[in-house]
């Protein structure tokens, strides 16, 4: 088997792109560790760019890549179910703060949807693009479902969700330091609502209390968004 044949064989196997995905993420994570946990050295952004470059250079279509990467993507579902666990373990501290949590959730979520759609619409983006932006702050499975319901492009939404998460994870610490918000619960919940799982991952790195509130805010945002979207879908809009 010569080198070209070997490549053709490997490229058809899910194992190769699965392994390459994990290697790219581990590389990104190693850089993040080495930088002393700097937020802008984001493992998702690094591995996403590296993998996209590899696919372009090797002329591999995304669908072929996804044959392998789907095993990682699949775990988003079980991981979403698993969010019940930190919510349960921290229920005593979370349930006392349901009122501020819920107010901040509604405000943060409305600002997220309103400003993203407003900016994209005013700057002339086509409807499928600004509709795909609307659910960008909710975690992927829900965001994709919402995008499909309202006439956006689910796969584009998935990518915009990830971009939002990376931006939120990078900006949250300097932004809230500048605002003088020192309460870890407020900081965590804000990044959970605005930047879902990637923001939550960042919050857990900075402070455990912030992490728990980020996870709770992400879960509640997912539930509320899914409910609102299903009601809207039910009324036929």
């Amino acid at each position: 088997m010569d080198r070209a044949q070997l490549w053709v064989y490997l490229a058809e196997q899910p194992l190769m792109w699965l392994t390459v995905t994990l290697l790219a993420y581990m590389g990104g994570h190693a850089l993040f560790e080495r930088s002393g946990h700097r937020a802008w050295v984001n493992p998702v952004a690094i591995s996403g760019l590296v993998l996209a470059a590899i696919l372009v250079v090797s002329d591999t279509p995304y669908s072929e890549y996804f044959e392998g990467a789907q095993f990682v993507h699949f775990l988003l579902g079980p991981a979403t179910v698993a969010l019940a666990w930190p919510l349960h373990k921290n229920w005593s501290s979370v349930s006392r703060l349901m009122v501020p949590l819920f107010c901040a959730l509604v405000a943060g979520s409305l600002v997220s949807v309103g400003s993203a759609v407003g900016i994209a619409y005013l700057l002339g983006a086509p409807a499928d693009v600004w509709l795909s932006l609307a659910p960008k702050s909710v975690t992927s499975p829900i965001a994709m479902g919402v995008a499909e319901k309202i006439g956006g492009l689910p796969a584009l939404t998935a990518g915009l969700v990830v971009s939002t998460g990376i931006i939120g994870a990078i900006m949250v610490t300097p932004l809230l330091d500048a605002m003088g918000v020192r309460d870890w619960r407020a900081r965590g919940m804000a990044v959970g609502v605005a930047a879902h799982g990637i923001g939550t991952a960042r919050a857990f790195q900075v402070n455990p209390v912030a992490g728990v509130f980020a996870a709770t805010a992400m879960v509640l945002n997912a539930l509320v968004t899914a409910l609102v979207a299903s009601v809207l879908a039910g009324t036929g809009t």
Partner: peptide, 17 residues
């Protein structure tokens, strides 16, 4: 599962291409 939640978003990130 939750400690490396961000890994699970990598395939969707690549999908932007």
């Amino acid at each position: 599962l939750l400690s490396h939640l961000s890994l699970l978003f990598v395939p969707a990130a690549v999908g932007l291409m």
